[in-house]
């Protein structure tokens, strides 16, 4: 399992970068979501995986029994998921608004704010 997960993370990252570099809005959203997922998974794996041992202290013990899973990465992960979810939903609504006002799904049509204003 530990061997498979890094590969999955790598595939997710590469897929997300590939999708973000596309010009279509929908692929941009997918790419952002995938890159969020990849990061979350990365955070989870790098906190070291311990299976079958929760960090709950039993009623008769003073400390948790080794081996137990480190609860900190899980807590970070939860926070990151929530924040990522918020930003992703904002992005989806934003892209919907952009589509409504520009009537296009092509990111190449959105280069006006970069351009230098012409001389009159």
């Amino acid at each position: 399992m530990e061997l498979i997960l890094p590969f999955i993370i790598g595939i997710l990252y590469s897929a997300s970068i590939y999708l973000i570099l596309h010009r279509h809005f929908f692929k941009l959203i997918l790419g952002l979501i995938l890159s969020g997922l990849a990061t979350n998974l990365f955070l989870f794996v790098i906190g070291r995986l311990t299976r079958g041992g929760s960090a709950i202290i039993g009623p008769d013990e003073n400390v948790a029994v080794e081996p137990f899973a480190d609860p900190v990465p899980q807590a970070l992960l939860l926070t990151a998921i929530v924040i990522g979810f918020g930003i992703q939903s904002f992005t989806i609504v934003l892209i919907k608004r952009v589509y409504q006002s520009f009537g296009t799904t092509d990111l190449d049509d959105m280069s006006t704010t970069d351009q230098i204003e012409e001389h009159h």
Binding site: G36, A80, G84, I87, F102, L107, T112, T113
Partner: peptide, 21 residues
């Protein structure tokens, strides 16, 4: 504003992922 926001949100979301990593 919408055009600026798209660029701002996308790049900052990626930056956030780097930060988390």
């Amino acid at each position: 504003q919408l055009e600026g926001a798209i660029k701002y949100v996308t790049i900052n979301f990626l930056a956030t992922n780097f930060l988390l990593a």
